[in-house]
């Protein structure tokens, strides 16, 4: 890859990361009516997640990458239960999995449209993981950007390598 191509790739990548952050905040404010703020974004050299609840979605076609949302059950459940107007009830694992799938689908879809990606960039159906303590890894040469978001129920993270 030439240096120019390389820097264009970086530009697209930075743009996608910024659009993703806005998409997370938008999604939570419109769908969950929850205010969310960014604590920080850090760069990691591997796409490694450690969490109780995770949702992952793969971007493929003319632009490739992985996007994931992860956090403790209490935080992810708080977000999902606000989305389905059920702020009090304890949720079944199946409902949390469905919710986190839809959540990662919406934030990645929002990123795509804010960044103006064409139909040639597609998203796979999302993958949801629920457990008391999970780790997952995706092999990539690209850096991973890890953004920590704050809600009134605690923090969650969004990983992106795009």
């Amino acid at each position: 890859m030439s240096e120019i191509e390389n820097s264009q790739e970086l530009d697209i990548s930075q743009k996608l990361i910024e659009c993703l952050k806005v998409s997370v905040i938008d999604t939570l404010s419109t769908m969950a009516m929850t205010e969310t703020t960014i604590i920080n974004t850090e760069t990691a050299d591997a796409f490694n997640l450690s969490f109780q609840i995770g949702g992952l979605i793969y971007l493929y076609g003319n632009h490739e990458g992985m996007i994931a949302i992860s956090g403790d059950k209490s935080v992810i459940q708080f977000v999902i239960s606000n989305i389905v107007y059920n702020p009090e009830g304890e949720m079944a694992d199946d409902d949390i999995m469905d919710g986190v799938s839809e959540l990662v689908n919406m934030i990645a879809g929002g990123m795509k449209s804010k960044a103006g990606l064409t139909t040639d960039a597609k998203l796979t159906p999302p993958i949801a993981i629920v457990g008391p303590s999970c780790k997952s890894q995706w092999k990539t040469f690209r850096p991973t950007y890890v953004t920590t978001f704050k809600t009134e129920a605690g923090n969650f993270q969004v990983h992106a390598s795009v």
Partner: peptide, 29 residues
């Protein structure tokens, strides 16, 4: 749908969809 691509909207309208709502949306919307 989360599909907000213009091509998708045009296709849906061409095939008779009356509205196109993209996720995320507010309940009022």
């Amino acid at each position: 749908t989360t599909e907000s691509e213009k091509g998708h909207i045009i296709q849906a309208v061409r095939h008779g969809a009356i509205q196109y709502v993209t996720k995320p949306f507010s309940p009022e919307e």
